[in-house]
Simulated scan of single mutants.
Amino acid sequence: MRFHTRKWVKPEDLNANQTLFGGRVLAWIDEEAALYSIIQLENKRVVTKYISEINFMSTAEQGDIVEIGIEVVKFGQSSLTLNCEVRNKMTRETIVTVDNIIMVNLDENGKPVPHGKTKIEFVKDRLEEED
């Protein structure tokens, strides 16, 4: 799994228990899944269709740095299925896991459209192909 994004847990990210608010980390996960899918599918029109069971395993506190990892599980015809792990950057302790996040590729009318992708592509490789 590749960890692409880091977040610094700030006071506004905390719940009443003074630990990382679950809703905040879920928003981070959804945003990361969208960004990852947009880059992979080369389309800005990508939406979240489904998020499976969310497993909160530990927490984070103010000042902690967490990182979000995304991995492709499957390329569908118009979708991309991902899994995700959020962990403490310093201790590597897992905070949250999500087994399946399904992102759907849309056309300009908001309808699902095939994306034609079958494997992970890296932007650096795309740039080399253009040269």
Rank of each mutant, 00 (worst) to 15 (best):
L127H: 04
T5L: 09
V25F: 06
V9G: 06
L127P: 00
E121P: 08
V46Q: 10
V96K: 07
L26I: 03
I39M: 14
S52Y: 09
Y50L: 13
R2P: 05
K124D: 13
V113I: 13
K44L: 13
E129R: 14
L41I: 09
F75K: 14
P112Y: 04
T94Y: 01
G23F: 00
T97A: 03
M1W: 08
R45D: 13
F56D: 03
I95P: 14
N88Q: 11
Y36D: 02
H115P: 04
I51F: 08
W28V: 05
M90K: 15
F3H: 03
E93N: 13
R45C: 08
V47W: 15
R2V: 11
S52C: 07
L127R: 08
S79W: 05
I101C: 04
I65L: 12
R2K: 04
E85L: 03
P11F: 09
R87W: 13
K89C: 12
M90V: 11
G63D: 09
I54G: 03
Q18R: 12
R92Q: 14
E31Q: 15
E42C: 06
V86K: 05
K124Q: 14
A60N: 12
I120N: 10
S37G: 03
E67A: 02
D131T: 15
I95L: 14
W28L: 06
N17S: 11
C84I: 05
E71V: 05
N15T: 12
Q62D: 00
R87N: 09
G110H: 06
E12W: 06
L41C: 09
P112F: 05
N17T: 08
R6F: 08
I29V: 15
D99V: 01
D64G: 01
L14Q: 04
V73F: 09
S78K: 15
P112L: 07
I70N: 02
F56E: 03
V104S: 10
S78G: 12
K10P: 00
L26V: 00
V73I: 15
T81Q: 09
N100P: 01
S58H: 07
K10T: 11
K44F: 11
S78C: 13
D64R: 02
M90G: 03
I102A: 07
E61H: 12
N83V: 06
E130V: 10
P112N: 06
N105M: 11
F3D: 02
S58W: 03
K119G: 05
P114M: 00
N83C: 15
V96D: 02
Q18F: 14
G69Y: 13
P112H: 06
E128V: 13
M103Y: 04
L20T: 04
L20A: 00
E32P: 07
